[in-house]
Design a protein around this nucleic acid. Sequence first.
DNA 1: ACACTTATTTAGAATCATTATAAAGTAGTT
DNA 2: AACTACTTTATAATGATTCTAAATAAGTGT
Lengths: 132, 132
Amino acid sequence: MKYIDKLRNSGLRPTKQRLQICEVLFDTEKTFHFTINELDQKIKDKIDNKISLATIYNTVHAFEKKGYLKQIPINSNQTYFDTNVTDHHHFYDLKTEELIDLENSDVGPINIKRKINGKKIKSVEVLVKLED
Amino acid sequence: MKYIDKLRNSGLRPTKQRLQICEVLFDTEKTFHFTINELDQKIKDKIDNKISLATIYNTVHAFEKKGYLKQIPINSNQTYFDTNVTDHHHFYDLKTEELIDLENSDVGPINIKRKINGKKIKSVEVLVKLED
DNA sequence: ACACTTATTTAGAATCATTATAAAGTAGTT
DNA sequence: AACTACTTTATAATGATTCTAAATAAGTGT
């Protein structure tokens, strides 16, 4: 199966539920953003059986930890995830609450001049808020 | 009184509680980051009477709407606010969960090349995640 | 295939930040 | 002082996320 390695790599046994979650997350042409509730809905739409929220949370968090998913830093009551794990940034439309990907090439190079002793930079993320 | 204008400007009547909140927020040399719970604690430390959480939320949100406070876009279970409302960015130490201000001069100019029709950029915020 | 150990799924409960409610109090106005 | 509109407050409601413990499934050795 296609996603067994991804699961094992994340420390998870490949179960029916997890493979179904993988299909919804990774079996798509384009990457996308989602909240847990949206993912739950997508899963319900795609397959007939429902998967419990606890399992969805568990699986998504394992993938996030392993870098197969990214959290998008944004203040919202729900956590947003991104299946696009390449370096990239976001527009956030304050009115519609919509998140839009910025390609890395849409943003000029970012130069962080300050260093913190003993720490290294893991990621640099830009959030561009849009208004009308 | 020092903060009456700020309050009126935010559409709030100057009450004892709100003036006390202002003192904790704005009567400091340095700007700082806080969650609502941390602010509640600071207020308890500084004054003897306690202010109800509802009032704190209400006041902080009015200030945020008016631009006297900023929300920091970060994924956390609690919302982080910043009394530094100038354009600036943040380091976030993943291990200690500490937020550190980056001066605007610490980050080179950021060039957003893409435009969205009918929308304008309200803010550009960079979050630099740090690891060991 | 069977028995055994360990991980997983699940529904439901628990937690915790935030928001809503509605009664009692306060500010601003006349 | 009287009146109206806004505030404060304790408490309840909400809603996302995490926890729990019992039932189920996966992996392993025989």
